[in-house]
């Protein structure tokens, strides 16, 4: 299992990802605190953290859990927030050539934005299957560990902070900070603006359906903006 080319790959993957991984720490802590301020017990919060292992999906579904929204709506919301992974997964899939199915499932479960961005290029280039597996697994397991440890720190810290400090606001900040780099592209900004405005306008719809309509409207608007933008540049 841990032959020398696996270890060489693991070493290189870990070292290249280490500086980037520090950014996970505030995220994990904020997610931990947000889960507690939503009303989860520490056990439920850490259970969610281990089972879901995805900051965006966790932070995005917490307001729905707090509002008592139906389960299917939470699942649809999580799917919408996770659709980017379908694209990442398709982009990095070639990097797992020669790897068996159970390990592919496990690697898929561990796939995160940071590791994808950090590892994709070499995963596609390098020939040695063992090296590639080490190169992907080491930073992924490191992310997993950081995520669990610092979410636990957040969970434990949240209890000692007064409720009127509105710590759940940190979840809103966290979601928006994720949005900022995306919105630097014009069509993404259009998708976000239309999604946000639609959700506000339709806030009165039952079952928080305005959220789903907002997401769909945002996707359509972004796609339309991309076409319009592209045509303008071509002319």
């Amino acid at each position: 299992m841990f032959d020398s080319s696996f270890r060489l790959g693991a070493r290189e993957g870990f070292l290249s990802f280490l500086p980037l991984s520090i950014g996970l720490i505030p995220w994990a802590m904020v997610t931990g605190m947000a889960m507690i301020s939503t009303g989860l017990t520490p056990l439920q919060a850490m259970g969610m953290n281990v089972i879901v292992f995805a900051g965006t999906a966790q932070l995005g579904t917490l307001p729905l859990i707090a509002a008592g929204a139906p389960v299917w709506l939470m699942v649809v919301t999580a799917l919408a927030l996770n659709l980017r992974f379908v694209i990442f997964s398709a982009a990095i899939a070639e990097g797992f050539r020669g790897v068996g199915a159970p390990m592919r499932w496990y690697c898929g479960h561990l796939l995160t934005d940071g590791v994808f961005a950090n590892c994709m290029e070499k995963m596609l280039k390098v020939d040695d299957t063992r090296w590639r597996l080490g190169y992907f697994l080491a930073p992924s397991l490191w992310s997993w560990l950081l995520w669990q440890v610092f979410a636990l720190v957040g969970v434990l810290a949240a209890g000692s902070i007064p409720k009127n400090w509105s710590l759940e606001f940190m979840a809103s900040i966290a979601l928006l900070v994720l949005l900022v780099p995306m919105a630097k592209q014009r069509p993404m900004l259009v998708a976000a603006a239309v999604g946000g405005v639609t959700a506000v306008v339709l806030r009165g719809m039952p079952l928080r359906l305005g959220l789903i309509v907002g997401i769909v409207a945002g996707i359509c608007a972004g796609f339309a903006a991309e076409h319009w933008h592209g045509r303008k540049e071509a002319s």
Binding site: L81, L83, S172, M182, A191, A199, L211, G214, G218, I219
Partner: peptide, 21 residues
């Protein structure tokens, strides 16, 4: 694939906007 790229931005904004506005 191209259409799906907009899903996260739309979803994030649709979740946050009602919370802050």
């Amino acid at each position: 694939q191209r259409a799906l790229r907009y899903a996260p931005a739309a979803a994030l904004a649709a979740i946050v906007a009602p919370d802050v506005l």
